[in-house]
Design a protein around this nucleic acid. Sequence first.
DNA 1: TTTAAAAAAGATACAGATGTCCTTAATGGG
DNA 2: CCCATTAAGGACATCTGTATCTTTTTTAAA
Lengths: 146, 146
Amino acid sequence: MVCSKSFGYALRGVLYVALMSDQKPRVQVEEIAEKLSVPKHYLGKIMKQVVKEGILSSTKGPYGGFSLNEKTLSSPLLSILRITDGFEQFNTCVLRLRKCNSSRPCPLHDQIEANRKAWMQIFSKTSIGDLLNKDEVSFLEGLATI
Amino acid sequence: MVCSKSFGYALRGVLYVALMSDQKPRVQVEEIAEKLSVPKHYLGKIMKQVVKEGILSSTKGPYGGFSLNEKTLSSPLLSILRITDGFEQFNTCVLRLRKCNSSRPCPLHDQIEANRKAWMQIFSKTSIGDLLNKDEVSFLEGLATI
DNA sequence: TTTAAAAAAGATACAGATGTCCTTAATGGG
DNA sequence: CCCATTAAGGACATCTGTATCTTTTTTAAA
């Protein structure tokens, strides 16, 4: 019922780059980590994966950093979740029964599956861009972590 | 979107004791662990907590073991989840924003909260007894773990 | 070409969930 | 009371997610 901390780091990292994109084309991990109150080096590792997945771009060297690309805004949250949490969580029986599946369900299977589908929907239907177009933009004032 | 392994151990442990209750009033952790293919000593620790919570009873010594009590069958799954996973998971912002709440929501807050409520419902409305009265009793044949 | 800046990559550390083992306490039967 | 049996409790090991630090690679500017 919860995502990893890494997911939060990744998503907020991408959002921060997107928010800054009209002010600066590239943002360094140093700045992101500071603004989000997040461990710098760890964030770096996660951003690297986000880049590998194609959700962001990056360049090394002076004036380098992380930047938006054609895919960024249209990327579903699911593509970040895939990196940080994987999808195993959507298929694991809560009773941890080996052979629980739709044709041979545990007593909770159907309810749980319906619920997970709804979760999956949220993450697949919502894109990075969607989050930026929401009314609740005030949330952006403080991207700082827990 | 997933419960801990400990939750699965605990719930199946309780279910096994309930299933055996007409054959034997008490079941030893040794037997439970074997039948569920679960680590014996670790299961012991979890069962202890389940007893402490009042969901099961136990007695030491010869012919001892774990047994049902008045509360067992009516206990909601939530009472087990509380022991093994806690409820923090229902309140943690997926973006890990410090001050995300219903009056100042992140763009995902409302959707996520609705979904978590549904999860919470499953675990609070479903009791141990309910699981035993389900049609899908065939699942009981193999309580063995993943 | 040299230099400095920044991401990428590698090594190590830490914490919590999980798992194992050994000791202690309780209990029923002799 | 004594003994065997079983849960409870404590100490330690392992594994995975999280975090830190150092080194390497790439790049832009001079």
